[in-house]
């Protein structure tokens, strides 16, 4: 299949994004600002981990290794996640804003993929989109609460987080070398189309939240992740994630 490389590249981006954000969001367990948020971030993390597993499983059917090996033995340069998901959890404002901007893109991506010509992905998209809808609902409710209905401090924190996270979020849409191929074969409409939908979706919510989208001179500053160039945060995270697995990668754990 001539589209294999393009398809795999798309699946790796998505799977790696979901794995890394799942890992990051799970770090809130036990540490949230209120217990209900510990629980919510954990639920979302579990969903994301499940989505990454489903995507790695599709990759396995395309000839890649089984999911544990793919997720737990690759090094940094083999990952295709965007920089946004790699950052440590920071404060709750940072994690919440990341959750909002990432999940909106994730939901819209799967929405586009429901009509993908690659049927297994279309099926998966139809299945997971319902879950991600709740992630977006959760994030948007909190962003609005803390942005427009909270305190002066919460508004200031949310705005400064948006200033920090928004430019990173543009890295989600780093174009791939396969854009034309993916669009022509009907697998995926492409990163530019997705970004356009994303802007249209986040703008009214941010406006309602009294938050202003910062100007970004060069979106490409957050690019690189899709080609294996990552922030300094990814490798330490992977080292931690694979610490036990690497004791014996051939053992059953």
């Amino acid at each position: 299949m001539s589209n294999d490389a393009a398809l795999k590249d798309l699946l790796f981006r998505m799977a790696d994004d979901d794995l890394i954000i799942a890992h990051r969001n799970s770090e809130w367990t036990g540490l949230g600002p209120i217990m209900e948020e510990d629980i919510a971030f954990s639920s979302i993390a579990q969903d994301k981990l499940g989505h990454s597993l489903a995507l790695y499983t599709l990759l396995e059917t395309l000839g890649e290794a089984e999911p544990d090996t793919t997720a737990f033995t690759r090094d940094e340069a083999q990952f295709r996640c965007c920089h946004l998901v790699e950052y440590p959890i920071g404060g709750y404002d940072f994690s919440l804003m990341r959750h909002f901007l990432f999940d909106m893109a994730d939901m819209l991506r799967f929405e586009l993929l429901e009509s993908s010509s690659y049927e297994p992905l279309a099926k998966l998209a139809a299945k997971v989109r319902g879950e991600i809808k709740y992630h977006v609902f959760h994030a948007a409710t909190w962003v609005e609460q803390l942005g427009a209905k909270g305190s002066e401090e919460s508004h200031a924190r949310m705005q400064s987080s948006l200033n920090l996270v928004y430019p990173l979020a543009l890295g989600i849409f780093e174009p791939s070398q396969f854009e034309a191929e993916l669009a022509a074969s009907g697998i995926f409409a492409g990163e530019a189309a997705l970004q356009e939908k994303w802007i249209a979706a986040i703008s009214p919510i941010l406006e309602r939240s009294n938050l202003r989208i910062p100007a970004v001179a060069d979106p490409a500053q957050a690019y690189g992740g899709r080609r294996g160039y990552h922030t300094e945060h990814l490798q330490p995270m992977l080292t931690e994630m694979t610490e036990v697995f690497r004791i014996d990668p051939t053992a059953s754990w």
Partner: peptide, 21 residues
Amino acid sequence: ITRAPGFKRKMALMAKVQDEV
């Protein structure tokens, strides 16, 4: 949770600790 070896354990441990909270 961040060190659990493999998908199955990572998923289960996340869910378990979430239950405790």
